[in-house]
Design a protein around this nucleic acid. Structure first.
Length: 908
RNA sequence: GGGAGCAUAGCUCAGCUGGGAGAGCGCCUGCCUUACAAGCAGGAUGUCAUAGGUUCGAUCCCUAUUGUUCCCACCA
């Protein structure tokens, strides 16, 4: 019995084994083949900082479903895995580790040693993550695995930097940047998180030079006053007209600063007068530029005050604020204090409040690069799914400012800029210069800084395929097809890949951006380390299997929306897997011995009409066929959740609940021909269902597939003789089912569905009458015409599934015994004699409910049909449909009423 | 300050271009029926946030309102 599945569904026993055999056999690999169409996805590279979280599981499952489906559709599907060095995040982690374990700072170790430690970290955690990715079942091509700091990516980064520099799109400038005092580096605008907080406005008087009333300015950051170079007022502000051109005194330090007129101050806000601190505020910086003011810095890189602050030198900026306010208050300069909501920028890595700081940094000039990226979205060459995210994308690009790309860190791509120590010449080059091209000096030093980690991520779709080399892979697999990512990194990553791709390769890096939501905990909170509410996907896999986790993540979600992680849902998915497992076990058990299997499978060689399929077989086939079409369409539209729902219903509700039950009698019967047909159809339907479920639940489907008799994988249900011509292989490499118009069987479908309706009606009556399920009942049927013929051909199903021992047909109700329960479905009346079991009161109530339900429906339709507008304007087909329904319901109501009257009489 | 999403059964959510409201979980009743109790059969439950509008017809389209979540933003 080696071809029968184990008794219990135990994913642990096969998931890892299957993954290994897939990987070893090269099933994940894509080889350039000009005869096949490529389908490419690059995996958003997880950071090497930690481990896989639920968000990765979600993101990866979406991609794996697409990749596995496209692969089965005959595409040359390539999914490139990799990981990201995550410059700042990793550097912080490594530095923390060194501090905790050795009590040393990174400066203690020095750059070289620190980088050695960072690489160690990468080897440890990078490896851990790739193992976790494997456990999810991701079918990525490991032979192409990349790292953002491997040789190829390094070359791409250098090439990209040099090209942009040569085009004048990268420049070095002394500008105001976001400085994180804790991480000790500059940050891009995207890396600053803004938060509204309750702060205070301080009104401070700046006395006029030579006495008289001064000017009161309002500020939320009094400690920056040491860097003030002016007080600005609006030119039209009458209150301050006389001050313009004169000077006021900066309190405490007693420095005279000018009062200037500028459009920037809003007379309606605060006092209408603004202190100008060009070195610590972006707006003030611009005012300073317009008026040629100095830009003195008063805060150090570690957020302490510098010498400009006089006696406050060395104090932390907030400690200084506190002390300064006290002194200002004591000396009468502090006029008043006011509560106010203030937007504060914080570092996205360490949450420290950002300090705007004047600094020499490298920038990417954005406007020229953003333009084509905007156009591609407007022209729909780049499509967002769902499309509302296009707004986010466009908003960011149209309001973009130059991108600060240099970071005062060690872990990352060192900037390919070289400075001559003698003449100060700056050389940006692909290869480090040996001598200065201007003065010939050999005293050349490379820039100490590294690049923003997102600079290399921006190149990911093509750097992973070999760019800047003109590789075969790049030529064939690029541009990629779809990028799958969360909405939280559209700014960081998506926009930058788009403009980088357009600039470097002249092409969009992908056609579609599939944007998904975040995985939240059961209460809807973001999963985070600090809350401790994160659920480890690996633990879930250990307990329920990867298939259950994947299926849970793929169902009940709509594109772009967040997903709450609930273990109940994982359990439900696991139960579904178990259901499929058992159904498959049943099918395999009933297949018989080799000769019987062969006999059954040989039916596949016959034309459809000669296979001896019965009504229920054809019904099942047409259900399957509809599903093939629907699921394929859903996947094409990126409605993965709907596709998953459809296959779930097909397997559980259609195949397990009905088809297997309908077919059991034949399997247990003695008619060998009948049995063979049932076996044949059961297994070929199972085969196609496994295929359609495979992208969602790759492990269990592959495992079951491996137990199917060899003969099964080579036969086809397609109506023609064009059958799959291939040897048995992995399910993951099999061909996706194709919709076949010849597999629609409307006659057999309505026949089977009538029988099913009758079975449901009988079960209902039985339950209402509280007749034991084991009690065999008799059934009398009053019907005529087409329905009568249908019923007669389905008698055995009614007997088997509704536990009926005898069916008789009557011409009119005079033939009925007294004690009988009844049910009506269109043009069929069912009567079940119940003798002692009949409870007239309950029967009366049940019929009343039925009757009322019917009346409501009829009323609704009649209202509709009485509406002249409806008759005149609604499509004819709809009107006809409504009319047909109405007469059907009316007939049913008449029959129910008749019964009701009879039962009513008994009650009296 | 600007923008977006969400509001549907007790809970979590589906509902594809407007034409009789769905699933899972939970709940009630009855079942260990030879694939499956991780199961089977039957059942109950919704002014589809509110108010208008468009339409023959609105959970679906438009407007406003309320509640809620999120994103963006250099206004002291």
């Amino acid at each position: 019995m080696e071809n029968i599945l184990a008794k219990n569904y135990a994913p642990k026993e096969f998931e890892d084994r299957l993954y290994e055999s897939w990987e070893e056999s090269g099933a994940f690999g894509a080889i350039v083949d000009q005869d096949k169409k490529p389908y490419t996805i690059v995996m958003p590279p997880p950071n090497i900082t930690g481990q896989l979280h639920m968000g990765h599981a979600f993101d990866h499952t979406l991609q794996d479903v697409l990749i596995r489906w496209k692969r089965m559709m005959g595409y040359n599907a390539l999914w490139i895995p990799g990981s990201d060095h995550a410059s700042i995040a990793t550097e912080v982690k490594v530095a923390d580790k060194i501090r905790e374990e050795e009590g040393k700072t990174k400066e203690d170790l020095g750059r070289e040693e620190f980088l050695r430690r960072a690489w160690e970290w990468k080897d440890t955690y990078g490896g851990k993550i790739t193992r976790q990715i494997r456990r999810l079942g991701n079918s990525c091509d490991w032979s192409r695995e990349r790292f953002t700091m491997d040789a190829g990516c390094n070359a791409a980064v250098t090439e990209s930097f040099v090209r942009l520099y040569e085009k004048g799109l990268i420049y070095r400038g002394n500008r105001l940047i976001n400085w994180c005092p804790s991480c000790g580096t500059s940050l891009s605008d995207a890396e600053v998180e803004h938060e509204e907080k309750t702060g205070k406005y301080y009104y401070i008087n700046y006395p006029a030079v030579g006495g008289g009333s001064g000017i009161v300015v309002a500020t939320s950051r009094p400690e920056t006053m040491f860097g003030d170079t002016a007080v600005a007022v609006h030119p039209d502000d009458e209150r301050y007209k006389d001050f313009v051109g004169k000077k006021v005194i900066l309190p405490i330090v007693n420095i005279e600063i000018p009062v200037i007129a500028d459009e920037y101050p809003d007379p309606e806000k605060g006092t209408g007068a603004v202190k100008i601190t060009p070195a610590h505020d972006p707006n003030d910086f611009e005012v300073g530029e317009r008026h040629q003011l100095g830009k003195p810095t008063c805060i150090n890189l570690d957020a302490t005050m510098n010498a400009l602050a006089g006696k406050y030198e060395g104090l932390d900026r907030y400690a200084c604020r506190k002390a300064l306010l006290k002194e200002l208050d004591e000396k009468g300069y502090l006029i008043k204090t006011e509560d106010k909501e203030i937007a504060i920028g914080a570092c996205y890595r360490c949450d420290t409040v950002i300090e705007p700081m004047l600094s020499d940094q490298w920038f990417v000039s954005m406007h020229e690069l953003a333009e084509p990226a905007i156009e591609k979205a407007l022209s729909k060459e780049l499509q967002h799914i769902p499309d509302r995210f296009e707004k986010t994308y466009l908003h960011w690009l149209t309001n973009i400012r130059d991108w600060c790309i240099s970071r005062q860190l060690w872990w990352g791509h060192r900037i390919p800029a070289y400075y001559c120590q003698d003449c100060g010449e700056i050389v940006v080059a692909r290869v480090a210069p040996v001598i200065c091209p201007r003065c010939g000096s050999s005293r050349i030093k490379q820039d100490e800084d590294v690049l923003d980690t997102w600079f290399s991520s921006a190149l990911w779709p093509f750097s992973t395929l070999g760019w800047p080399e003109k590789t075969e892979d790049l030529d064939y697999f690029y541009p990629t097809d779809v990028l799958v990512t969360g909405y939280d990194i559209i700014f960081f990553w998506v926009v930058r890949m788009v403009f980088s791709g357009l600039e470097m390769t002249g092409e969009l890096p992908f056609k579609y951006v599939y944007v998904h939501g975040l995985v939240r905990d059961a209460e809807g909170r973001k999963m985070s380390k600090s809350l401790g509410n994160g659920v480890d996907p690996i633990e879930v896999i250990d307990q329920y299997g990867a298939d259950a986790l994947r299926f849970m993540l793929m169902t009940g979600v709509s594109p772009g929306n967040d997903l709450k992680f609930q273990i109940d849902k994982v359990e439900a998915s696991r139960n579904f897997a178990n259901k499929l497992w058992n159904a498959s076990r049943f099918v395999l058990m009933t297949l018989g011995d080799d000769a019987e299997i062969l006999a059954a499978m040989s039916l596949g060689n016959l034309p459809m009409a000669e296979r001896g399929l019965l009504d229920e077989d054809k019904w099942m086939l047409s259900q399957l066929n509809c599903c093939v079409q629907e699921i394929t369409t859903n996947l094409e539209k990126f409605d993965l959740s709907l596709a998953a729902q459809k296959i779930y219903e097909l397997i559980w509700n259609t195949y397990c609940d009905w088809y297997i039950e309908l077919v059991k009698a034949r399997l247990y019967g003695s008619d060998e021909k009948d049995k063979a047909v049932a076996r044949y159809n059961l297994v070929i339907v199972l085969k196609d269902m496994l295929k359609m479920l495979h992208p969602f639940m790759p492990f269990i489907t592959e495992e079951i597939w491996s137990y199917l008799p060899k003969a099964v994988s080579t036969i086809s249900i397609e109506s023609n003789e064009a059958q799959e011509n291939r040897k048995i292989d992995f399910l993951m490499r099999s061909q996706w089912p194709i919709y076949d118009a010849a597999l629609a069987f409307p006659e057999e479908t309505s026949k089977t569905e009538l029988i099913m309706d009758m079975i449901r009606a009988i079960r209902n009556v039985r339950a209402e009458a509280e007749a034991a399920p084991s009690k065999k009942l008799k059934l009398m049927i009053l019907s005529s015409g087409k329905e009568l013929a249908f019923i007669q051909s389905g008698e055995r199903h009614i007997k088997n599934l509704a536990n009926i021992i005898e069916i008789s047909y009557i011409q009119d109700k005079s033939q009925l015994p007294d004690e009988v329960m009844s049910s009506v479905i269109s043009n069929v009346e069912l009567f079940i004699p119940l003798d002692d079991l009949l409870d007239y009161q309950a029967e009366f109530e049940r019929l009343s409910r039925e009757s009322n339900k019917m009346k409501v429906e009829i009323q609704r339709i009649q209202d509709k049909l009485a509406n002249q507008g409806f008759l005149a304007k609604a499509p004819a087909a709809i009107v006809e449909e409504e009319k047909a329904k109405c007469s059907n319901y009316e007939e049913m109501l008449a029959k129910i009423s008749e019964r009701l009257t009879m039962v009513g009489k008994k009650l009296v």
